[in-house]
Each structure stands twice: as C-alpha cells, then as structure tokens.
Computed example of a mutant assay.
Amino acid sequence: MKLRKVTAAAAAAVVLSLTATACGGDNDKNDSGSGSGGGDKIKIGIKYDQPGLGLKEPDGSFSGFDVDVATYVAKELGYKPDQIEFVETKSADRENALARGDVKFIAATYSINDERKQKVDFAGPYLLAHQDLLVKADSDISQGTDLNGKKLCSVTGSTSAQNVKDTIAPKANLRQYGGYSECLAGLQSGAVDALTTDDSILAGFAAQDKYEGQFKLAGLKLSNENYGVGVKKGDKETADKINAALEKMVSDGAWQKAVDDNFGPASYKNEPAPKIGAIVK
C-alpha cells in the first residue's frame, strides 16, 4: 500500500479543522444535557396538560408533582432551574423522544412495564398510582358497574382504556384522543361516559377550580402504575444518578412536600414513597 506524503500546509489544515471541531462540540451541551452536570442546559420531557403532575401555566411556567421531581433530579445532576428546558412529551412519543435524544430523561406519568423496558431504561419508581375512572358527579358508574357499551376515553399511547376492555368490559367503546384535556371536554359534554387513566392524573383534573363539583373518582383500583423516570436505553450512568437523587428526595422530605403541594387540594390518598427498583404488580 502506497502512503502519500503530507505537506506542511496540509498538516496545518488538519490541525485547524480538528481545533474548530473541538470548539464547536461545546454546542452539543445545549441539546439534551450531558447527564454529568455542568452543561449549559438539560432538556427534560414532561406532560403539558396534566394538572397536579405536569402542567404548562398560562404565564409559561410549569407546575406539578412530575415537574417538582424533575427539577429536584436535575439539581442533583448539576443543573440549576434556569438551565432546565421542559419539553412536551406526549404518551405516544415518549420512547421515540428518548431514542432520538430529544430529551435527557422523561418524568411524565411514565408507568414502568415490560414492553416499555424493551425500548427504554427506567429509574425509580418514584410514585405508585392506580388506574381509575373519572365520571360526572351525578354518574351512577361506580365499583361493580357494568361498563360494557359505555364510551371510555383515554389518550393515544396509553394502556388504560385497553386495560378496561381486557379485564372487566370487553365490549366497552374506546375513544382515544391526543390529550387528557380533550377527554375531559368529551366527558363534560357527554360525548364519553368516563375518562380512564391513573387516579393521580384524574385527581389533578377534578381538583381544578373551574371543574369544582363537576366530577368524581369512581374508586376502582384497576391496576398498579409504577411511575418511573425514563432514560435512553443503555444509559445506566444517568439512571443510577437519578435513582440516587430520588432516594435523597425521599429522605430529606422533599418528596412528601411535593405530594402535599400538588395533590393535597384534591384530598388524594397517595401510597407511601416506593423503594427504588420495587415494582408492585
């Protein structure tokens, strides 16, 4: 094999090119965060339409339990609140957002299950919720009600409505919308009979001032939902750091404060903080 001689000018060009590439690499920190702290910004996936959990307020700020958890975790990873960029991550796009590197991690009522673990890794769990139904205050739907033929709403990408069909009402009519706010509007108008998802999410909606007295929880515990923090598949380093942050959040009282601040107004009876890695089936 013949080797070509490298002239001094060519060598200098190579050095300059490498130097420019190294300098330009700093811009990568603006994408999803390095996960080791010290980056310019970290992008975190949350929901924008879940009161009490992940909500974008009219003034552009964010509130909710997931937001508080994400902010605490980001702090432990080395990021200040003004270095956090919250990115709306809908249920149907969570795995893709992590695979594409759109966000560093996701805290968005993201239940840990075997199917999802094939595509992403999880830290946590950090909250144990249960699937329930939200119905109108004067509805006769309650525990033991025959839901066959009833119109049940949930969001695209969620397993909640399908779980109702698989377990108690195979002839229920499923309506899947893009967001929970659309389901709530359908429930309010009578287009659907019930909105089904986790009790924590439903409690957040029912507690809003504008819906005071209009809705109630049916009181069904149809499943155990172990909320985890999703990270890109194979990113064990970030998952381990997040687990350490979650443990600290529980031990220093910040976890319970976040529960009280976000779910207290709805009289939501939460489960105790789960142990890291302990999945309740």
Score class of each variant (00 low, 15 high):
residue 225 E to S: 13
residue 225 E to R: 09
residue 226 N to F: 02
residue 226 N to C: 03
residue 227 Y to A: 04
residue 227 Y to F: 12
residue 228 G to F: 11
residue 228 G to D: 10
residue 228 G to W: 10
residue 228 G to I: 10
residue 230 G to S: 11
residue 230 G to F: 10
residue 230 G to W: 09
residue 232 K to E: 07
residue 233 K to H: 11
residue 233 K to R: 11
residue 233 K to P: 09
residue 234 G to C: 04
residue 234 G to W: 07
residue 235 D to K: 00
residue 235 D to I: 02
residue 236 K to M: 00
residue 236 K to A: 09
residue 236 K to G: 00
residue 237 E to H: 08
residue 237 E to Y: 05
residue 237 E to C: 04
residue 237 E to K: 13
residue 237 E to W: 03
residue 238 T to V: 12
residue 238 T to S: 10
residue 239 A to Q: 00
residue 239 A to F: 00
residue 239 A to T: 00
residue 239 A to I: 00
residue 240 D to W: 00
residue 241 K to N: 02
residue 241 K to Q: 04
residue 242 I to S: 10
residue 242 I to L: 12
residue 242 I to W: 09
residue 242 I to H: 11
residue 243 N to K: 02
residue 244 A to P: 04
residue 244 A to G: 06
residue 245 A to N: 03
residue 245 A to Y: 01
residue 246 L to P: 03
residue 246 L to A: 04
residue 246 L to M: 04
residue 246 L to K: 02
residue 247 E to P: 02
residue 248 K to C: 05
residue 248 K to M: 02
residue 248 K to F: 06
residue 249 M to F: 06
residue 249 M to N: 06
residue 249 M to T: 04
residue 250 V to A: 12
residue 250 V to H: 09
residue 250 V to S: 07
residue 250 V to Y: 11
residue 251 S to D: 14
residue 252 D to F: 07
residue 252 D to R: 04
residue 252 D to E: 06
residue 253 G to Y: 05
residue 253 G to C: 03
residue 253 G to R: 04
residue 253 G to N: 05
residue 254 A to Q: 11
residue 254 A to K: 14
residue 254 A to E: 13
residue 254 A to W: 02
residue 255 W to M: 08
residue 256 Q to C: 06
residue 257 K to T: 12
residue 257 K to C: 06
residue 257 K to M: 07
residue 258 A to P: 03
residue 259 V to I: 13
residue 259 V to T: 01
residue 259 V to R: 01
residue 259 V to K: 01
residue 259 V to E: 00
residue 260 D to F: 14
residue 260 D to I: 14
residue 260 D to Q: 15
residue 260 D to C: 13
residue 260 D to H: 13
residue 261 D to C: 07
residue 261 D to K: 15
residue 262 N to C: 10
residue 263 F to C: 08
residue 263 F to Y: 15
residue 263 F to G: 06
residue 264 G to I: 13
residue 264 G to D: 14
residue 264 G to F: 12
residue 264 G to V: 14
residue 264 G to M: 14
residue 264 G to P: 12
residue 264 G to C: 14
residue 265 P to G: 09
residue 265 P to K: 09
residue 265 P to W: 07
residue 266 A to M: 07
residue 268 Y to V: 10
residue 268 Y to G: 09
residue 268 Y to K: 09
residue 268 Y to T: 09
residue 269 K to I: 12
residue 269 K to N: 14
residue 269 K to F: 11
residue 269 K to V: 14
residue 269 K to Y: 08
residue 269 K to L: 12
residue 270 N to E: 15
residue 270 N to S: 15
residue 270 N to A: 15
residue 271 E to R: 11
residue 271 E to Y: 13
